[in-house]
Write a protein that binds this DNA or RNA. Structure first.
Lengths: 222, 222
DNA sequence: CTTCAATGTTAGTCTTGCCGAACTTGGGTG
DNA sequence: CACCCAAGTTCGGCAAGACTAACATTGAAG
């Protein structure tokens, strides 16, 4: 595992680029990257150039952004740290699965490799974090279950929630309230193409729930 | 508790100034502060001025350095974080008491107030860290046991180790090896004034141990 | 094929924290 | 009592990372 001499912000960029393509094929743009980093596009553009100069990504001006193997290795290391920390906060410190993201975001830059190893050991080498995201192993292999977004799943079938994007804490809190968590089973009642709404029923519950486009994009099922 | 909008380095200065006077009366100097922060005196001097401008300490040029109540509150908060984290690393993640200092040094800036509260709760609100240093309570009260340095204790008596300075990790490892830990009992055999050596016997062990000036300064007993 | 709005880039500036070099202070010694 | 040296300070500079403003490119719509 690369022991990082990169700045926190460089690590964040690499992680963001990596995770952007983890569950979808569309390449990430400078603008989206800037939004996620809560930074102006000019800043993101600068940073990209610096990362390119360090050989961590490939990028021609106005072109697509792609990680090199070196950049990818750093990114996977950060993702692993983030997800192990989230799991640790839930299992050892009693955090709710909707509360851990921001804490892990900071901690992932602060903990040593030693501490990550001890956490991994203490948790019994887990393979999925509290949102259902796969935790890459220490040798850098991600562990990707086949899954599709709820908004693309066929109506009528019963499906299992595999993964919920942790991008928006408020949305996570909502999912938590209604009982939509990783491993929950649900039936898709209806898709409404023009409003992008999906109606579902959580197994064992009576009432239907309407999910808007953002929500039904964030939930991945098999 | 002050929720800190200070930079990491400002927090470090305040903590260092506070701890410098925790176990001794001699006021800290710019040079010592610079050494402990691993920066040049010019940098330390700059930083002191900035902290003065923020009302966190009192300092006339070429004069002594003293914390204001506001500065002291921030410092105590950082000390509390540091010591709770050290305790957590030992008790929950199985660290040795000689390994925790550097890890806690970084983490103390990264963990949220929420996480500190959960750790405190999880540990049962401890009052002493693994080195025997008092953990200030959440309301900012330090908790100072009466103690003196081993080099100032009277020979012949049996004393109890209360606290070992965590300034030097290598020294801690040595103490750990010979079994000199907080709460250990020992007998002081001899003081040699000119070499500043102290000879002790750990209770239940046969052999005498010679401690040099640095070591016998770092150990506090009652 | 032209135009133009969205996207991306460059240039210049600010802040923080660090440095080295040069200057100032002030307490102890001859 | 003057001097000197260690301790402390000031100053100019540098790098990282952020910003604003201005400029460049692309590609999609007319």
């Amino acid at each position: 595992m690369p022991v990082s001499d990169l700045t926190n912000s460089a690590q964040d960029y690499l992680k963001l680029i990596w995770t952007a393509t983890e569950w979808s094929e569309t390449p990430i743009t400078v603008t989206v990257l800037a939004e996620r980093m809560r930074v102006r596009p000019s800043t993101a553009s600068d940073s990209i150039k610096k990362l390119k100069d360090q050989g961590l990504l490939i990028h021609a001006p106005y072109g697509t952004i792609e990680l090199t193997p070196a950049g990818s290795a750093h990114a996977v290391d950060m993702v692993r740290r983030h997800r192990l920390l989230e799991t640790f906060l839930v299992q050892v410190l009693g955090y709710g699965w909707d509360e851990v993201h921001d804490e892990a975001e900071v901690l992932e830059h602060a903990v040593s490799d030693t501490m990550i190893e001890r956490i991994d050991q203490r948790l019994g080498r887990p393979t999925r974090d509290p949102h259902g995201d796969p935790i890459p192993s220490a040798d850098g292999q991600p562990h990707r279950p086949g899954a599709i977004q709820l908004c693309h799943a066929e109506p009528e079938g019963e499906v299992t929630v595999v993964r919920i994007s942790d991008a928006d804490p408020a949305m996570l809190r909502y999912f938590s309230d209604i009982g939509l968590t990783p491993d929950a089973k649900l039936t898709i009642q209806k898709q409404r193409p023009y409003t992008d709404t999906t109606t579902i029923t959580l197994s064992g519950q009576q009432k239907n729930i309407d999910l808007g486009p953002t929500a039904s994009n964030a939930v991945w099922v098999t």
